[in-house]
């Protein structure tokens, strides 16, 4: 059976730049797409890509913990989303044209309070801001492209938190923000105790997000994306 290092050796062709591009795609999907399945898949991909990037900066075993964290968090959120009744087309929320047009229905519920074009614009601005910050204030001890990935994830996470108060979607934003910080912090922190506690905190955060999502019991509207 191939070891972890064998697997990483096989994946050597994936450069830092390509991996950071993957982060752009995953975080962008979380910010733009309302569908919770796509968002959760994107989050899982984000953890995998982050783990891969970290495997080049720290011990591969430590990086594997990040991937395992994602592998535990995503199913937790998936089960919570299923239990809370998230369906794209819910028969109890038949959507009249007036609601499709965005003229609120007090019984309806919107994941994002703004529509897709605004979100695309916001994501573009965040990307530009991340590039500028990375050039003006480069992050210490990590390569510049990884620094760009850090800034991108933190800023897009903050954007998602600003755009929604819905726990599941907002939770993905918060986890994205923490993943961005993780990219910066993991190479800096040498204490196993702190690293272990950080992982526990992330897992419990996912549990809290799942709890709030189930309590909220969200039914999405049929909307763009």
């Amino acid at each position: 059976m191939p070891t972890l290092r064998d697997v990483l050796y096989q994946l050597q062709f994936i450069t830092h730049e390509l991996a950071v591009l993957g982060l752009f795609v995953t975080a962008g999907l979380i910010a733009l797409v309302r569908d919770w399945r796509v968002s959760l898949l994107a989050l899982l991909g984000q953890y995998v890509v982050t783990g891969y990037i970290l495997s080049r900066l720290v011990l591969p075993e430590l990086a594997l913990i990040k991937i395992l964290m994602g592998a535990l968090i995503c199913p937790m959120l998936y089960l919570a989303a299923r239990q809370s009744g998230w369906n794209l087309l819910s028969s109890q929320r038949a959507t009249p044209r007036s609601i499709r047009a965005g003229h609120g229905d007090s019984t309806g519920y919107y994941v994002f309070r703004v529509n897709l074009p605004f979100r695309i614009l916001a994501v573009t601005l965040v990307l530009m801001l991340a590039v500028v910050l990375n050039q003006t204030y480069p992050l210490p001890t990590i390569p510049p492209d990884v620094g760009l990935g850090c800034y991108w994830l933190i800023l897009i996470g903050l954007l998602i938190l600003m755009l929604t108060e819905e726990p599941l979607k907002g939770g993905l934003g918060l986890l994205t923000l923490l993943t961005g910080f993780d990219l910066l912090y993991t190479p800096l922190e040498h204490s196993l105790v702190v690293a272990w506690l950080w992982a526990v905190v992330n897992l419990l955060l996912a549990l809290a997000i799942a709890f709030l999502a189930v309590v909220k019991g969200v039914g999405t509207m049929e909307e763009d994306l």
């Binding site: 938190l161 108060e165 907002g170 918060l174 923000l177 923490l178 709030l212 309590v215």
Partner: peptide, 14 residues
Amino acid sequence: STRAAWRFLVMMFI
């Protein structure tokens, strides 16, 4: 509403 718990959680994690 989950506003209070959510806001508390977000601020503590930030």
